[in-house]
Every structure is written in structure tokens, then in C-alpha cells.
Amino acid sequence: MIADLPQIIVTGLALGGLYALMASGLTLIFGVMRIVNLAHPAFIFISAYITWKLFTDLSIDPLVALAVTMPVMFVFGMIVYKLFFAREADNPRYIEITVLTTFALALIIEGVLGFIFKGTVRSTNPPYSQQAFFIGDIFLSRAQLYAGLIGIGLIAFLWVILQYTRIGYAIRATTQNRSAAQVVGVNVERTSMIAFGLGVAMAGAAGSLFSFVFTFFPGGHWEWLAILLALIVLGGMGSLPGAVIGAYLLTIASVFVNDQIGFKWGPMTFFLALFIVLMVRPQGLFGSKIEAT
């Protein structure tokens, strides 16, 4: 049975890049604003549906659609921030209010998607979604490979922005010490808005890739929420490298569970990991404690 191990690792590595991309925005938004964005998978689904619409109506390849969804979701994210979170910064019930607001947003998005696209299970099927490479006995889906590579590429791009640009400095500074950032002249409100936009843009990119790797229906985002939370909680909430490592570790683990125990228990890997990490080591591998004062 363990002869499957190379296959498990290859599949896990390919999928891991996409999972990491899906989680990257979630961890960024938490880091900068301490908002647990429960609507993040719903944002991913918005982009997946836009991609699906572009693909079915205009035959635009999902990989091309990415050039649309990313900027659209970037702007969408900034608007959402302005509307719902900008005024809450000084609220003593900040954590509770923001978490529940994202929860309500997720419900609204679910309802709107259901209203427009109905409950049917969808996915896009560009040519590469049915093709695969074989390396000896090892099977590697082209869809998963493309999604994984682009996912990691975009995370690297995000990392470069954070590390070397002016806004990147501002975002990191706000993440590490909000009041200090204010004191050196960072406009933390504007920085938060842009960071939120960037996080949602990452969700936008992830949605386009997601559309040809997985299937989706309006209510399906809740399951992904727990999966993504598991990745970033394991890696340490707020840490981008943590999200990547968490994604690879848990993806490989879940592929292993799928293969060895049974397909239906795969998601349980994430749910249990989420629960256990929260209880045993809430700061995860690389993060600082996420408990609020």
C-alpha cells in the first residue's frame, strides 16, 4: 500500500500550491487587521463563478480569466473593507463584530450566488482539465499541476511585494505593530484597505484556478472555510510562509488519508487538525498567539 507514497506526495505537492494560494489572502488579512475572514472561501467562490461565466459564455480560458478576476476582486475587497470594517477599528467588541460581519457576508454571498447561478454543481473544463502526465507509474493531472505552479508563483509575487515595495513595508509594519506603524507615518487605514484588497485579489486568483480543479456550488464554501482555517492555523495565523508550509503538510496528509483510509475521510484531516492545533498550540508553527486581549 505504501507503494503509493510517491503518488501521494506528487499529488499533495501539486494541490498544495493551490491550497496555499487560497489560504494566503486569509492569513494576510488576519495578520494586518486581526479579522478572521469567514467569507474568504465565499470570495473564492465569487471568482470561481465569474470564471465559469466567462468560460461558458465567452470561452475564455480560466488561466486568462485570472487577469480579470484578480483586479476585480482587488477592487471588490477594498470596497468591502471600506463599507464594513473601516469604521470598526476602535470598537471594543472588534473581534466579535468583525468575525460576525464576515460570517454574514458569507451568507449573503452564498444567497446571491444561489440566486444567480442556482444550486447546480459547476466547474470549468478547459482542455487541460482532463489531461495528465505520467512519470513512470505516477499520475499527475495537468490541471492540478498548473494550478499548483501558478499558485506558488502568485504567492512568491505577493511575498516580493511585501518584502520590497513601499506598500509592502507599510503592510508588514502594520501587521507587526499597528501603533508603531502609525507613529512612523504609515496611514494604517489606507494600508489596511489595500492589504484587504490584496488578500481578496489572492482569493480572486485562487477562484479562477479552483474552477477547473474542483467543483463548486453556492453552499460549498463552508467546508473550504474549515480547510483553509486549518492551513493557516497550523502555519500560524498571519504568517505567509506558515500558510504555505501548512498547506503542503496538510494537503499531503489529506491525500494520504484519502488513499489509505477512504476518500470520504479526507476532509476530516483538516477539521481534526484545525481543532487539535487550536487546542494544543493556538499560535501554530510560526505565528504569534491569536487570542485576543
Partner: peptide, 23 residues
């Protein structure tokens, strides 16, 4: 078990609980 954490960690754990039981 779960009330050892608070804030966002607690809220997330309650969602995890539902999904564990559901699975």
C-alpha cells in the same frame, strides 16, 4: 477542551466542531 482559548481561536474551534461531527 475548547474554552482554554478565546477570541477568534474559540470561534473557529466551534465551526471545526460542527464539521468534525458532520463528517
Amino acid at each position: 477542551i475548547t474554552l482554554r482559548v478565546r477570541g477568534p481561536a474559540f470561534i473557529i474551534s466551534t465551526i471545526a466542531l460542527v464539521l468534525v461531527l458532520r463528517t
